[in-house]
Each structure stands twice: as C-alpha cells, then as structure tokens.
Amino acid sequence: MTSAFLAILKRDLALASRAGGGGELALVFFLTIVVLVPFALGPDLNLLSRIGPAILWLGALLSMLIGLDRLFQGDEEDGSLDLIRASVLPLELAVLAKGLAHWLTTGLPLALAAPLLGLLVALPGEAMLPVAATLLVGTPALSFIGAGAAALTAGLRRGGLILPVLVAPLTVPVLIFGVSAANAALGGTIPFATPFLILCALSLAAIVVGTLAAAAALRHSA
C-alpha cells in the first residue's frame, strides 16, 4: 500500500517535470500577477511595500488555481483514473498522494519564490521570511480545497472554467489569516503566532476535508 502511494506521488512529480507537465506555469503566472499589480496601483514603493504581503498572497492564490483543473481531468481522460480506482490503495490515500504532489510542484515553489518576488514590491527584509512561512503552511489548504473541486469537475469538458468559481469562495479564510499573519510580522497589535496557528489549523482541516470530498466525488463520477 505504501508502494502504491509512493508510485502515484512519484509519477505525478515525474509528469510535472517532463515537457508539457506545466509544473513551472504557476510560477510564471505568479510573477505575472505581481508585475501587473503595480501597473494598476502605480509604482509608489511605499504603497507597494505596505500591501506587499497582500499582493504576494493574492498572486500565490490565483497561481494555485492555474492547472488545478488538470489534477484529475488528465487521469480521467486517458483512463489512468480507472487504474487508480482498481488499485489496492484506498481512493482517499490516492487523492492524498495526488494532492501532495500538486503542492510539491506548485505551492512549495511559490512559497520559495515569494521572497524573491517580494523584492519587486519592496517588501521589507524582515517580512520576507514570515511571508514565505505563511505561504508554506497556507498553500497546502489551497491544494486540497482545490483537489475537492477538481474531483467534482474531473469528468466535465469545461471544468477549467467552473473550477475557479467553485474554489475561490472556499479560500477566503486562508487568504484572511495568511495575509494577517504576514502583516502581523510587519508590526501591529496582533502577535504573529495567533493568525499563523489558525492558518496551520485551516491547512490541516483542508487536507482532511478535501481528501474525503475528492475521494467521494471520484468514486462515482462517470
């Protein structure tokens, strides 16, 4: 059973790294959003620096949605999902493996790239680590909330269109606590730990709920 779990994880990581895997698209999209915001707000570094954590969080959130529709759709289209259903592995664990692979190939790189992109919005040096840390613990929630929705739309041809509409409202709490933790690190009345721990809790809950929901949706999808 462990080997089946690892096999799914390994395969998804391999697919993301091969040509056409789209593993790097989320990063490019992240960069694009961070570049677009100053065009709308103006190049005032003081302003950008103040809202930097918010820009980075919004950018990361939207980037996580890119390609999320392919999480199960690709497997559904080519029949791999039937193979996964026939596996000795419970469907929940298969979803967990796929969600983990999604996070490793999108959430983790986004969190690691965030300090670098923080330079573009003049994020103060002392805020870089906290922003990266909040993204590191917050993005798993996005991966798994997304996995639940992606499982629902796996069989739909136009699932890519409906997915962001389904996922975005569910990510509101993650966004709120992610940004307030990052802002708390910049100074303010709330200590950093309070929103940060709530963010951790949201991620853990999302992993459980998202996995169960996705497995239930996949079990009788066709």
């Binding site: 080997s3 089946a4 690892l6 096999a7 799914i8 395969r11 391999a14 697919l15 091969r18 040509a19 056409g20 895997g21 289209e77 080519d78 029949g79 791999s80 039937d82 193979l83 996964i84 026939a86 596996s87 000795v88 592995l89």
Partner: peptide
Amino acid sequence: HVVGHRDGLKTALTAQENLVFAQALLG
C-alpha cells in the same frame, strides 16, 4: 484488471515507467 477503450497510459512516461506504476498500484 480493467482495460477499457482508453489505454490508461501517460504519454509523457515510457512504456516501462507506465507498467512499473501499474504494478505498484495493482499489487
């Protein structure tokens, strides 16, 4: 074993990688 009209293969992986994956899944 289920072999449907969709082959259940990943085009980006080699034939062997696909079978190694299937073997790990099916036990």
